[in-house]
Amino acid sequence: MTRIAPNGELVAVGNWGGSVRLIEIPNLTERLNLRGHTNKISGLSWFPGATRPERNVSPDSVNLASGGAEGAIHLWSLKQDTPLSTLSGHSARVCRVEFHPSGRYLASASEDTTWRLWDVEKSSEILLQEGHSRGVYAVSFNTDGSLLASAGLDSIGRIWDMRSGRTVMILDEHIRPIHALDWGTDGHRVLSGSADGWIKCWDVRKVQSTSSLGGHTSAVSDLRWFKGLDDPVDGTPPGVDDKGAQQPKKSGSFFVSSGFDTKVKVFSADDWSLVHTLSGHTGPVASVDVSGDGKWIVSGGHDRTVKLWGRNDMEGI
C-alpha cells in the first residue's frame, strides 16, 4: 500500500512485515519507520492537510492512519515511531482506511463484512455498519463527507448517506470483487475497480453507471482520481490567463489505476481514453497514488518494490 502525503514530498509505504515507512520524494530515502502492526498493512490514509504548512496540522498530532491484517488500526504522528493510539474492534483484516474530509472521523473496511466509523480525537467507535454479505475491501468519502462508498468481495458497492445511515445507491454491475473506490472532485461521481478488470464510473445524481472501461487484463487493485491543487474543496481555484479568460480546471481531469497485470495506467477523465501505460513492475501492482501537483505517481507491487514515476519534463501539471 502506498499513499502520497498532501504536500507531495513524502510517501507512506505499508509493507508485508507490518511496518509503515515514510519515504522522501524524489530520492526515496527513508525518513521514519513506524512500527506497531503485527501483520501486513492493507490500508493507509493521510490526515486532511497533513504535511502542508498552511493547514497548520501539527507533526505531533495525528497525521496518518494505517490498517493491518491483524485487525488493528493505528494513528500516527510524524514525530515518533510508535502509534499515538490504536482503534480496536474489527475481528478480521482491515483492508482500507480513509479520513473524513473534516479529519474528525475515520472509516475502515474489513473482511469481517463491516465498515466502521471512528471518532479520531476520542479513539472510539461511533458506527458499525453492516450490509455486505462478504468482506468489505474499500471505503471512500466524497468531497464534502456527506456520502460514503463501500464495496468488497460480494462484488457489490453501496453509497451511504452519512446523515441517515441509509443506502442511497447500489453499484451492482461488476461480476467479481471490487477492490478500489475513489470519488471525483465534483462530489457526485465515484470510480470503482474490480477483479473483473473493469473500471466503472457511477453518478449518484443519475443513480446509474455512466462509463465502463476495460482497464486491465487482470484484476484492478487500486485507483486514484487526480484531485489537483485547484481542488474546489481543498485547493486554490484556477484563475484567469493574461487575456482575462478563465483557465480550465485541472483537478479531476485524469485518474490512475493499478492492476494484477503488472501495469499502472493513466486515463483521461474527459473522454475515458487511455493516456499512458507504465510498465516496470515484474509482479501484480497492489496500489497506486498521484501527487496533488500531478508531478509524481507512486506504485507498490508484489515484486516488493516501490516505483516513482514522473513526467518526461519532470514538471507538474
Rank of each mutant, 00 (worst) to 15 (best):
I41C: 01
S42W: 14
S42H: 12
S42D: 10
S45N: 05
F47R: 13
T51V: 08
T51K: 13
E54S: 14
N56R: 13
N56W: 09
V57T: 03
S58H: 05
P59Q: 06
D60T: 07
S61P: 01
S61A: 05
V62H: 06
S66E: 01
G67T: 08
G67I: 05
A69F: 03
E70M: 13
G71P: 00
G71F: 00
G71E: 00
A72S: 06
I73W: 01
I73V: 04
S77P: 13
L78W: 07
K79M: 09
K79F: 02
K79V: 07
Q80P: 08
D81W: 10
P83T: 07
S85G: 14
S85H: 00
T86H: 05
T86D: 03
T86E: 10
S88M: 15
S91R: 15
S91L: 15
S91M: 15
V94Q: 00
C95Y: 03
R96M: 08
S102W: 03
G103Q: 03
G103V: 11
Y105R: 09
S108Y: 10
A109D: 04
A109H: 08
D112S: 11
D112R: 13
D112P: 13
W115R: 06
W115T: 06
R116N: 08
L117V: 09
L117M: 12
D119Y: 08
V120S: 04
V120F: 10
E121V: 05
S124F: 09
E125P: 05
I126Q: 04
L128Y: 08
Q129W: 09
E130Y: 13
E130K: 14
E130I: 10
G131V: 10
G131D: 09
G131W: 10
H132G: 07
S133W: 12
Y137K: 14
Y137A: 13
A138G: 12
S140K: 09
S140T: 09
S140G: 07
F141E: 00
N142G: 06
N142F: 02
T143S: 11
G145M: 04
A149K: 12
S150N: 07
S150M: 11
G152E: 08
G152P: 10
L153Q: 14
L153T: 14
D154H: 12
D154P: 12
G157N: 10
I159G: 11
D161F: 12
D161Q: 07
D161K: 03
M162K: 13
M162R: 15
